[in-house]
């Protein structure tokens, strides 16, 4: 277990609430009037074709990108006031794997937020980071430069970093992309454990065949919001086809 003092989130507020969100790169709109609410303690898949704006949605939620209209509230407040409750796993393709840093160092970065400006990480941070690596089965690779890890191991390191953030809401961008079967199972087990501890996970996902197995709720996106809700209700052939435009190999529930 990770021995941190529990960061309490304000009760009663939704972990994530998106209202009329519109986002654009310059004049090209990518997200159009998207609204939904995520209840606490749920595993939520964000599903949609390439270029649907899934990554953009996470960027706006995290304040990396400013929305053109609408807003995203995290635990009922703007992201800047809620960042200590949010953990983040980036899309693998967006990471500079040749950066001179090792697994332990990457995990420690998850703790920089609580340290604040100027304070340096010390032994305590190191220990927490090692525990988080242990949790994803990566402690023996702590001092390995990150490009020398396999795809699955790299993904685990970034999950460990999110764990180190000890968040209430986790935002993950395609954590299952390019990982082997064992890592996929390990990630799923981890997501379920987070859920049991009352955490909320919003996870961009690209594999339609596992949506019903992995997630409680789904956000179907294609620029606009196609549907949002419990997997059984909204992950239907009709909705998936609406999101992907045309027929898809569908292995959903409803």
């Amino acid at each position: 277990m990770i021995h941190l003092k529990e960061t309490e989130a304000p009760p009663g507020a939704f972990p994530l609430e998106v209202r009329g969100l519109t986002a654009a790169y310059r004049e090209k709109p990518v997200l159009w009037d998207v609204s939904f609410t995520i209840p606490e303690g749920q595993l939520v898949g964000v599903v949609g074709p390439n270029g649907a704006g899934k990554t953009t949605l996470l960027k706006v939620v995290m304040g990396v990108m400013r929305p053109a209209a609408g807003r995203a509230l995290v635990f009922g407040r703007p992201f800047e006031k809620a960042r200590r409750w949010v953990g983040y796993v980036p899309q693998r393709g967006s990471v500079d794997w040749d950066f001179p840093t090792d697994a332990l160092d990457v995990v420690m970065m998850g703790l920089y937020g609580r340290l604040g400006w100027l304070r340096r990480p010390g032994r305590r941070e190191r220990e927490i980071a090692l525990q988080c690596l242990e949790k994803v089965g990566m402690s023996e690779f702590a001092r390995r430069q990150i490009s020398q890890l396999s795809g699955g191991q790299q993904q685990r390191v970034f999950l460990a970093r999110a764990l180190a953030q000890d968040a209430r809401l986790y935002l993950m961008d395609e954590p299952f992309a390019g990982v082997d079967y064992r890592t996929e199972r390990a990630i799923v087990a981890l997501l379920r454990e987070l859920k049991e501890r009352g955490r909320t996970v919003v996870c961009v996902h690209h594999d339609l065949s596992t949506v019903t197995e992995y997630f409680d709720r789904v956000v179907l996106l294609n620029g606009r919001l196609i549907a949002e809700g419990p997997v059984q209700e909204v992950f239907t052939r009709e909705n998936v086809e609406a999101a992907y435009g045309g027929s898809v190999a569908f292995a959903g529930g409803g």
Binding site: M62, G63, R83, P90, S94, F99, V106, M109, G113
Partner: peptide, 10 residues
């Protein structure tokens, strides 16, 4: 290394 994380961490 990760400007998005840096932003998110404040």
């Amino acid at each position: 290394f990760d400007p998005a994380l840096a932003t998110a961490l404040g």
